[in-house]
Amino acid sequence: MAVKSVFISGVGGQGTILAGKVITTALVNQGYDVKMSEVHGMAQRGGSVITQIRYGDRVYSPLIEKGRADVLLAFEKLEAVRYIDYLSPNSTLILNDLEMPPASVLTGKEAYPQDIVPRLKEEIKNIIVVNAVNIARECGEIRAQNMVLVGVLARVMDWSKNAFIEVIRQVVSPKYVQVNINAFERGWELNV
C-alpha cells in the first residue's frame, strides 16, 4: 500500500498525543509500517503542537511534506489555518469547531479571526466541521473530544472500527475507557 499521511494539529493539553497513540497503535496492530513524529518539551506548555503520522508498506520519513498530507485533523481553528499548506487539493480537513484564544488574544492585543470556518469551507473541497467539544460533553467527559475526532478520522480513512475500540481499551486508563469508546463511536457515526 502506498504511504498515507495524517497531520494532527492542536494546542498543548488538548490530548493530541493520546490521539496519536491510539491511531498508531491501531495501525501497527493491523500490520502496517508506521512512523509518528511529535514534539515535546517547551512547545507543550499551551503552545501550538503537531503530531505527524505516516503508514503503509514501507515508510521512510516520519515527517510529512507540505502538500502531501491525506488528512489534516485540526483540534482548533487557528491550528488548522496554520498548517493547511500540508493539504493537497484532494485531501480532507477535519476541523474541530473550537476557538482557543492564544495569549495575545486573551490580553486583547490581537483579535481572533472570525471568518475561519466560512473561508476554509470556500477554499477546501473536502472539509468536515465537527463540534467535538459538544459531542464529548454529551458523552460525559469534555476531555474526550480527542476520541470524537479520532472517530471521525477513522471513518474518513476507512479504518477498522473494532481495531480502534480494542486499542482504546488497551491504552486509556480503565476509568475512562467507556466514555472514550462512546466518544469515538459518536465521531464514527457522524457519517460525514
Binding site: M42, R45, G47, L78, R82, I84, P101, P102, E110
Partner: peptide, 12 residues
C-alpha cells in the same frame, strides 16, 4: 492552500 499568515501566533 497557503497558511494564513496574519493570524495570532501561539507561543507556549
Amino acid at each position: 492552500f497557503k497558511p494564513y499568515t496574519a493570524v495570532p501566533s501561539r507561543p507556549p
